[in-house]
Design a protein around this nucleic acid. Sequence first.
DNA 1: AAAGTGGTTGAAAACGATTTCAGTCTATGT
DNA 2: ACATAGACTGAAATCGTTTTCAACCACTTT
Lengths: 334, 334
Amino acid sequence: MDVKIVDVALKAKVSPTTVSRVLNNNPLVKSKTREKVLRVIEELQYVPNAAAKNLRQQRTMTIGIIVPDVRVSYYTDLVKGIQTKAYAEKYKIVICDTNNDRVIESEYLKLLSDRSVDGMILVASMLTNSEVQEIVDRGYAVGVIGRSIQNSKVLNVHTDNVKSAKEAVNHLIEQGHRDIAFLSGYPNAMDSYDRLEGYIKALKEHEIPFNPSYVESGNFNETGGYEAMLRLWDKGLKFTAVFSANDEMALGVYRACKERGISIPRDLAVVGVDNDRVSQYLSPTLSTVNQPKFQMGFTLAEKLINRLNDEEIEQERVTVLESELIVRHSSVKA
Amino acid sequence: MDVKIVDVALKAKVSPTTVSRVLNNNPLVKSKTREKVLRVIEELQYVPNAAAKNLRQQRTMTIGIIVPDVRVSYYTDLVKGIQTKAYAEKYKIVICDTNNDRVIESEYLKLLSDRSVDGMILVASMLTNSEVQEIVDRGYAVGVIGRSIQNSKVLNVHTDNVKSAKEAVNHLIEQGHRDIAFLSGYPNAMDSYDRLEGYIKALKEHEIPFNPSYVESGNFNETGGYEAMLRLWDKGLKFTAVFSANDEMALGVYRACKERGISIPRDLAVVGVDNDRVSQYLSPTLSTVNQPKFQMGFTLAEKLINRLNDEEIEQERVTVLESELIVRHSSVKA
DNA sequence: AAAGTGGTTGAAAACGATTTCAGTCTATGT
DNA sequence: ACATAGACTGAAATCGTTTTCAACCACTTT
């Protein structure tokens, strides 16, 4: 149906081999032959068939990305970074949106294990270590963001969550707060854990006792943040500030405050993490810890592609990028 | 390297043909044989090679999506809809982010023309009609959102932009406004044009004369909206309301108003289009015309897949979905 | 004149699945 | 006992490239 390499070869009066060489810029071809072949390719509008090429070369120039939800700006910014690097290196990306469902995530992993991608990037993955390990063993290059994998070849990019959290909480303390609540994400997510650690460290450094009842889990989403706030208040706890492990949950905090007539930042100071796109548009604007999401995606893609292009290249398995506290209006009294 | 179909065949003491039949649920296989084969597949952790399968079957079960920018919530919501349907039908999707660059978009089109996808969805495409036509001629199923293609087999889903705009402007008029500015998108984008038409129609119906100097283009982005507002004011025009052809530009309107100390909605009523995720979080919350973005993506994917599965199926080439005015605080005086 | 050299080309095998077509086997009816 | 249909299986061709290997040609060197 489509025009194929032998059609070009026939018309150009050369062998398919030569056409292939022209396509792949093999310098062995005499320039006159090359020109002739190129002319015919143009004439016939020939495009090489990817499946045939993939089959023969045993690679697809494609990277698979598994994300929890493509609508979340945090993930999209990562994807943008990955995509930008991938495009520059002539890689394609296939996106799998798990809808925050671990079963679907597992299915996607299987779906991608058919050599239709050369490597995979797992974002905020809920897969077990052994599931990930198996993919590595099958020879896929894999990178993760938003979790840690011990003892393997898995590439990783992240920010120093302990430090980020500490900075955020320090900032609240400097604003005069002593009673600071903490909204964590999924209890077992790496990021949650580190941010909790940073929270505790900041308190310790200022000799504020750590009280576990000030900690509530909000599952990293708006509703979770909202409900967590209600729970905190229902406990009868007094606090003047809250550190939310991400901006999404902070949205829930805003909603809860609005309902209860609590003024931010007058009655309650709020700091989030991620610098979600909406944060700057909230009233008051939300103080947050910015994550260099684009850069994280870009860097991880770079490392992954390095590995794909050259197994031998010397590079760090783990990269830590800097995050940065952005002080806006939600944490500073007028 | 990987285990392949003959390995399974050998171990199960059957032919590759039979293994293939088992894989593809061909009912001809005796159930005892099937079980044996399945056991070996499980034992060997065999996964069929996609490239080989694609080559033989001449299809990839993959849909390509070309979008201007994956960070924009409008596009992401579409992608989510597409992805949801695609997943249900066992299709993969590859995403191409053109970064709003028509040259890059063209390159992506070429990149996808190698039979690595069975169909393509172009979102807010800047390609020429003939470029799109060529893809159709090559036998790809193609769908578009956010532009119109005349005279071809290209699938399309959209909302009635004329009506949406008219409703939005009617709403402003009902709130007592007579002098209403209009912020258009790209001058030559279909959507811009239709929304302008709706704006004019609404004015006409209320016997308000249409004055072209009330129209400024803002290129569909925040900065464009901001600058368009400044230009309108600089002209010395008096107006008490503005209809922005999308929410993104309305963000620019908010910024401009803040800078000039103009209060929304007291001094200026604002209505946007798209129901961007941020709109509900703005202060005041932004009135807007909601587009069923998820549904649009889902529907287009459905039609595209229908076409891929069965060339003969009877279905409309163009689907129009309903949009809906959401009145929030930016357009209603307290 | 024979042998070597470097530049250029092509024939054929390979990649790993599916599909066509031709069987083989079993059971059934006569 | 034989023919025959139906159930099941396998050999070989096929998809469209890339890659290996051998060969060819035109020169130069000995």
